[in-house]
Amino acid sequence: MDYRFHFGQIFTSLPFLMGGALLSLEIAVLAFFGGMVIGTAGAAAVTLGSPALRRIARAYIVFFTNTPQLVQIFFLFFVLPDAGIVLDPLQAVLLGMTLNAGAYLTEIQRAGFTSVRQTELDAAAVLGMSTWQSIRYVILPHVVRTLFAPLSNHFILMVLGTSMAAVFGVDELTGRAYSINAETFRSLEVFSVTAILYVLITIAASMVLALAGRALFRVRMKFV
């Protein structure tokens, strides 16, 4: 083993990589919030919906949580054009990640919905709260506090998951690592630095989430 590490070229392209990291975060944020919209609707459908609606929501969850996100995106990217719908790589990745997140976030939010205890609602009623007040002051704080940690964890997993966008040529962090690797052939260095950047951005994201949870919802969470 006479391999010598050369980080020089990698360090000069650090701003380029960091720009990619920003795109990674953007993809994760967009897909997460898209997923939250689906997830909220899905959780409402599963807990409150008509039997038919429930079945549809369940089928959606079961399908998306039992197949790989990567293959779902392949499907969107390669199959939809045959049906006349052409997505560019970023659109396909965003749509795929959103649909996937929607399924997982439905599951997480459903657990939050069912965690509201009847006794709490009774207590709110005894205190003379209206339905709206009991939602605002009892249900919502409780649900947010139960859900904040699992949702944060899923967001971190999604940040890591954005790396598969590189497979479709999106130039987020891993995609840019691909291109630097192709130019410099310093593969081990490129991917080490990329790995460290992922560690740093996910730690930063965890910290922001923990602080936000503490400040906004008084959720106690550990940083790392």
Binding site: I156, L160, G161, T162, S163, M164, A166, V167, T174, A177, S187, L188, F191, S192, T194, A195, Y198, V199, T202, I203
Partner: peptide, 13 residues
């Protein structure tokens, strides 16, 4: 905190 894809390439290289 390292994506599986990046980890794969690290081990590969």
């Amino acid at each position: 905190r390292i994506p599986f894809l990046v980890n794969l390439f690290l081990v590969f290289y």
